[in-house]
């Protein structure tokens, strides 16, 4: 069993480390610093940490002001509050003036678990993707989280980073390099491509293994940046493998699946099947139980690829 780490924990660690190297980094939280893990930075750099209380709109607005004065603010809360409660502040005070604010939202998706549907963001990627100029990053593991948070610091402009609550397997070696907008090909294959993001990348790899045993060779892409999409890698996948399954812990509406389908439909049309949350809210339960109930499993990915194979064979 691979070593595990929650992406939020990786975020907390790297943020505190980056804070040492870059004095411009300031961090804001809305009374959730122990959960979002910004508490690590807060303990190390108390004068550069601002607890804004339970006031997400004010937090994002304040972050905009700090950025306008030259700081690199990271604002953290749960994804559901960051993109819901503070949407207008993100749109009008951050993205519209293109201010250098990094929104690192944790507890995204169903794997929030027991807190239930009110706290499980299933539409945050869709909301952030629709904002002009917003970069949207969904890291798959602890290593990529650290690398991509670092890349976000070096990128000038607003970035949304989607992080999760549960510990997930480490997929990359410590020194793996990541570039915003450049997907990682984790496995080559000529038959089909599985494009996954976030915690579903590990499951996509497992599915590819099972499929390989049955003679179906799938390519697996970790699309850690949903926007801008790695169009080059996707175009190649469409051209070389002829069919794509997308996998995400997010609604099938507006997220990775939509982004991929939109792109290939306009460039190199191939069949696309989207594995994700089917336009419903989540509920309370253990993370694994929820992933099972809402169809975010290795089996469902395998099934989707086989469906793609049958459809293709039938000329559909």
């Amino acid at each position: 069993m691979a070593e595990k780490m929650a992406t939020r924990d990786a975020y907390g660690d790297i943020l505190a480390q980056l804070g040492e190297e870059n004095e411009k980094i300031v961090v804001l939280d809305a009374d959730l610093s122990k959960s979002t893990k910004t508490v690590v930075f807060a303990k190390k750099f108390p004068h550069r940490f601002f607890n804004m209380g339970i006031a997400e709109g004010d937090m994002l607005g304040t972050a905009a002001g700090l950025a306008a004065a030259g700081k690199i603010p990271f604002a953290s809360t749960f994804a559901v509050f960051a993109t819901g409660r503070a949407f207008d502040q993100i749109r009008n005070s951050i993205a519209y003036p293109r201010l250098n604010v990094k929104i690192a939202a944790t507890h995204a998706g169903l794997t929030v678990g027991e807190d239930g549907g009110s706290h499980q963001a299933v539409e945050d990627i869709a909301i952030m993707r629709a904002i002009p100029g917003m970069v949207v990053i969904v890291p798959a593991d602890g290593v990529s989280t650290k690398a991509l948070v670092t890349a976000a610091v070096n990128y000038q402009g607003p970035v949304y980073i989607r992080l999760g609550r549960p510990a997930v397997p480490l997929l990359y070696k410590e020194d793996e390099e990541f570039v915003i907008g450049k997907a990682k090909e984790l496995r080559d294959g000529k038959d089909f491509t599985i494009v996954a993001a976030g915690i579903m990348v590990a499951k996509a790899l497992e599915a590819a293994e099972i499929l390989a045993a049955e003679g179906i060779r799938t390519r697996v892409l970790d699309m850690h940046t949903i926007k801008p999409l790695d169009e080059e890698a996707l175009e190649r996948a469409a051209r070389e493998t002829g069919g794509i399954v997308t996998v995400e812990e997010h609604s099938v509406i507006g997220g990775l699946g939509s982004a991929v389908a939109e792109f290939v439909a306009e460039t190199h049309p191939v069949p696309v099947i989207r594995v994700g949350i089917q336009d419903v809210f989540g509920e309370s339960g253990k993370p694994d139980e929820l992933l099972e109930k809402y169809g975010l499993t290795v089996e469902k990915i395998v099934e989707a690829v086989k469906r793609l194979k049958n459809n293709t064979a039938a000329g559909l």
């Binding site: 300031v26 004010d58 607005g61 304040t62 306008a68 004065a69």
Partner: peptide, 10 residues
């Protein structure tokens, strides 16, 4: 006012 606060903090 939130933005002004951010500038004042900076």
């Amino acid at each position: 006012l939130s933005v002004a606060n951010g500038m004042a903090l900076a």
